[in-house]
Write a protein that binds this DNA or RNA. Structure first.
Length: 265
DNA sequence: TACATATGATCAT
DNA sequence: TGATCCTATGTAA
């Protein structure tokens, strides 16, 4: 589930559970052992999120970088963690009543200032980190690829993934193959606001729900079944919730994208 | 038991 | 564009 909303949610939860405490750090799987032994017992000072990247700030100016990639997951346990974490558990964090296991990350290691700068240099504005709408619009102006491809480019906007790009474009009525530079400032601004709203809701809820509950006869996003939460993502051949047209799917930037060709003409 | 699939990103060609 | 890395889950066999 790791799009930007998940990452910012983890930052908030981990900050609340661990910041200001000395944390026991280990690596059941072994691949993080060297860094774990450096961090073990140190005080975690803060947790920052930018785009899909997490930065854990420890005493003595140590920074741990975590990127979940496609498969990465954190599991938090209160009071009683499972006696045996999965053998694939890369990192275990434990302090007080909280135990957190991390599995499957693309990256989990201590980084220095240069490496952090390099990472930050690859990221554009993040709607969940006070990103700049103007910068986003300017980034689109510079791109001749489709807006669908541009939204997956973390340098154009940080934190958007395959679900949010499809859903945000549907909600704004923009066809994914529209050239980014042809979107224009007005639509770029509305698209930015839309992404911001969707990401914020996802960060709070811990899941991606883009459908307006009223449109499917529900009163709260929580009441929507798994099959009712999204407008177009993974709904190939199903009827558009707004107009009934069959949802189409095709490749965009090496991934599948979904859209209603009628609502997103 | 095996296979397909996934909300990501990088590197080689 | 294609191969590759990382892991868990759901479905098929």
């Amino acid at each position: 589930m790791p799009e930007g909303h998940t990452i910012h949610r983890y930052a908030r939860l981990h900050r609340r559970a661990l910041a200001g405490t000395a944390v026991a750090v280990s690596s059941p799987q072994g691949r993080f052992s060297a860094d774990a032994s450096i961090l073990d017992g140190r005080v975690l000072e803060d947790v920052d999120a930018l785009g899909k990247h997490l930065f854990y700030r420890w005493e003595d100016d140590l920074t741990l970088h975590v990127h979940l990639g496609l498969f990465g997951k954190f599991r938090s346990h209160r009071a009683v963690p499972p006696p045996d974490p999965s053998p694939a558990t890369r990192m275990a964090l434990q302090s007080g009543e909280t135990t957190i296991y991390l599995s499957g990350p693309t990256d989990c290691r201590l980084i220095d200032g240069d490496e952090e700068s390099k990472i930050l240099g690859r990221l554009g504005p993040d709607p969940l980190a006070d990103g700049d709408a103007e910068a986003f619009a300017a980034n689109l102006e510079r791109r001749s690829v489709g807006i669908g491809a541009a939204l997956l480019d973390q340098k154009a906007v940080a934190g958007i993934g395959n679900v949010y790009r499809a859903e945000a474009l549907f909600l704004e009525g923009i066809h994914p193959d529209t050239r980014a530079r042809d979107v224009g400032p007005e639509r770029a601004s509305r698209l930015w606001d839309r992404m911001t709203t969707l990401l914020r809701a996802g960060e709070r809820a811990g899941r991606i729900v883009t459908v307006d509950p009223a449109e499917v006869g529900a009163s709260s996003p929580r009441d929507l079944g798994r099959e009712e939460r999204l407008y177009v993502y993974k709904r190939t051949g199903e009827p558009c919730r707004r107009c009934g047209t069959s949802i189409g799917s095709w490749p965009s930037a090496g991934r599948s994208i979904w859209a209603c060709e009628s609502c997103q003409g």
